[in-house]
Simulated assay, not measured.
Amino acid sequence: MKYVGEAPQEELATGERSTRNRVARSILDHGPSTVSDLAGRLKLTQAAVRRHLDALVADAVVEPRDQRVYGSRGRGRPAKVFALTDCGRDAFDQSYDKLAADAIDWIARGAGGGARGDAAVTAFARDRIATQAGAYREAVEDAAPDKRTEALAKALSADGYAATARSAPNQQGEQLCQHHCPVAHVAEKYPQLCEAETEFFSELLGTHVQRLATIAHGDGVCTTFIPHGAGHGPPPGTSRVGGTPEPDTPQTDPPQISQQTEHQASESTAGRNPA
């Protein structure tokens, strides 16, 4: 957890952050607390606690509330308590990744495991993308054809993917780079999440795209190659996210990029941490 406005001396700043984290942790462990409660638990003066609380409030980590009183209340205003905000709770360890993985495990087992389980997870991954498709589709359709990859990157960034668009090393297309993946830990076990996303990019941009790297597989950035000319309609035989080609529709192989391009892309992403 990082805070602004610390004292300039490194040792002092470190001590300030440590004590501030203790204040926030005490609220997490014990619930909404008064200044007096915190001072007693942490063996600090009330003035010191107030100073740390002021900084935590400024950083939207905690918020002041009126203390709830059950039963008859005496005279005077109720004491002020300080509670963690959603942002403050997110600063501490969460189990969302494990919860998501457990839920997908349950889906796979419920379908019978094996190939049926894999198919059920794929269906889930495609449905998940479909529920998010509206904003991405609107952003891409409103953009000029040569700006659609950039528009998709901006829409992804709004959902926490820290995405950018840039020219590919061979100048034959663009690279969509996602510097952060909110589901990377789950996708490491279930690559269907990445595969469904790639299918969606292909359908949305109207061309076959090629995944070069993913954070879930240990790369620094999720990188997707998009050839020039993307954005002029869906691939033949596809109409929806995760759609499959019609039986009699001739298929074309996805555009291949040179080994040199793929090597350059790996070098450009290797070792880079997600933003």
Rank of each mutant, 00 (worst) to 15 (best):
R75Y: 14
G76V: 07
A79C: 02
K80T: 15
F82K: 05
A83C: 06
L84T: 09
L84S: 06
L84Y: 01
D86R: 13
C87S: 11
G88T: 04
A91Q: 15
F92D: 07
Q94H: 13
S95Y: 12
Y96A: 11
A100G: 02
A101Y: 07
A103M: 08
A103H: 11
I104Y: 01
A108C: 01
A108M: 03
A111C: 04
A111G: 08
A111K: 01
G113I: 00
G114L: 02
G117D: 04
G117A: 02
D118K: 15
A120I: 04
V121P: 08
V121C: 06
F124Y: 15
F124W: 15
A125G: 00
I129W: 04
I129N: 00
T131Q: 13
Q132Y: 13
A133Y: 11
A133V: 08
A135Y: 07
R137K: 09
A139R: 03
D142T: 12
D142P: 00
A143T: 00
A144P: 01
P145F: 00
E150M: 04
E150G: 07
L152Y: 05
A155W: 07
L156N: 04
S157P: 05
A158M: 09
D159A: 15
G160T: 12
G160W: 01
A162V: 11
A163V: 06
T164V: 14
T164H: 11
R166G: 10
A168R: 02
Q172P: 00
E174S: 10
E174V: 04
E174T: 09
Q178Y: 06
Q178G: 06
C181D: 13
P182E: 10
V183I: 13
H185G: 06
V186D: 00
V186Y: 01
A187W: 01
A187R: 02
A187F: 01
E188C: 08
E188P: 00
Q192D: 14
E199F: 07
